[in-house]
Simulated scan of single mutants.
Amino acid sequence: MTQQINLFNPIFRKQKKYFSSLTMVQALAIICGACALLAVDAAFRTRALTAQAAGTEALLAARQQRLTDVKVQFAPRQKSATIAAEIVAAQAELAMLQSATATVQRGGFGDTVGFSPYFRAFSRQRIEGLWLTDVTVASGGATIGIEGKALQAPLVPQYMGRLAQESVMKGKAFATLAMTAVAPAPAPAPLVLAGGAPAPAAAPATPVYLKFSLQSVGASPKAETPK
């Protein structure tokens, strides 16, 4: 029977050295150098950020000071009661003017051309033997009244026809026409001739003139008489 005996002890095998002391020193030196570079870079970055932060704080402080100055310079003024009252009065006046304008545009005042065109029309249509004594123009021309005298009755309708040709009288109509004869003064008492015989009676007196009145619908004499 054969038996092999191994007399080799592993501790006597030559061991490999992976990290020598020199290698470890070199690695440590490299690590220290890298840390130093990182520290220097961090210091530069920190200094730059500190300077930037200081500049930002200075700019913020300047803007806050400017804002304070502006608030002091342009402080809000107290509301003036006088200005508020003037605004209310101006608004009321504006509303009144707008309402008046709307009324005029709607024709709420009737004829808005005034009295002058009517009197010019009356003066243009003169007829010999007829004259006016009173003229009434009211409600912007919606109400017209004419009073006058005429030597003959036919002159009145003739005058009415001529007035109807005036442009300002277009669409106007007279509702009533009244004429009254004005008699002359009463004759004196008859004389008595000598011997007691009465004098012959005088012929009956004829009317001196006619008074006439023209009134439009709703007109009343002398309601408004521009002279």
Rank of each mutant, 00 (worst) to 15 (best):
P186D: 08
A189C: 07
A164E: 15
V192F: 00
A202S: 13
P198C: 01
P184W: 02
T143G: 04
F174C: 11
M160R: 15
L151T: 14
A187H: 05
L163Y: 05
F174G: 10
W131T: 13
V156L: 12
Q152E: 14
K149G: 03
M169W: 03
Q165K: 15
L193A: 03
A181G: 15
Q165T: 13
L155Q: 14
I144E: 03
G145S: 07
A183R: 10
P188S: 14
T206V: 12
M160I: 15
M179W: 00
G140P: 06
Q165N: 10
Y159S: 06
D134N: 13
A201M: 03
G161Q: 15
W131A: 15
A185T: 08
S213I: 01
L132H: 02
Q152C: 06
L155P: 00
R162T: 08
A178L: 04
P186I: 05
A203C: 07
Q152G: 08
A189H: 01
Q165M: 11
G140T: 10
A153C: 05
P154H: 13
P154I: 14
P184F: 00
P207K: 08
Y209Q: 09
E166F: 04
A153Q: 14
A199W: 00
S213A: 05
A178T: 08
K170Y: 01
G140L: 12
P207F: 08
S167Q: 07
F212E: 05
P184R: 05
G148Y: 03
V135Y: 12
K149I: 06
A175H: 07
V168Q: 12
P204M: 04
F174H: 06
A201S: 06
G148A: 07
T206H: 06
V168S: 09
E147G: 14
S139I: 04
G129R: 14
G129I: 12
V168C: 12
L191G: 03
V156H: 09
A185R: 09
A197E: 00
T143E: 10
V137I: 12
I144S: 04
G145T: 06
L151Q: 14
P198L: 01
L214A: 04
L177M: 08
L163K: 10
A203S: 09
A194H: 06
V192Q: 00
Y159M: 14
M160S: 11
Q158M: 15
L163I: 13
T176N: 05
Q152L: 13
T143L: 14
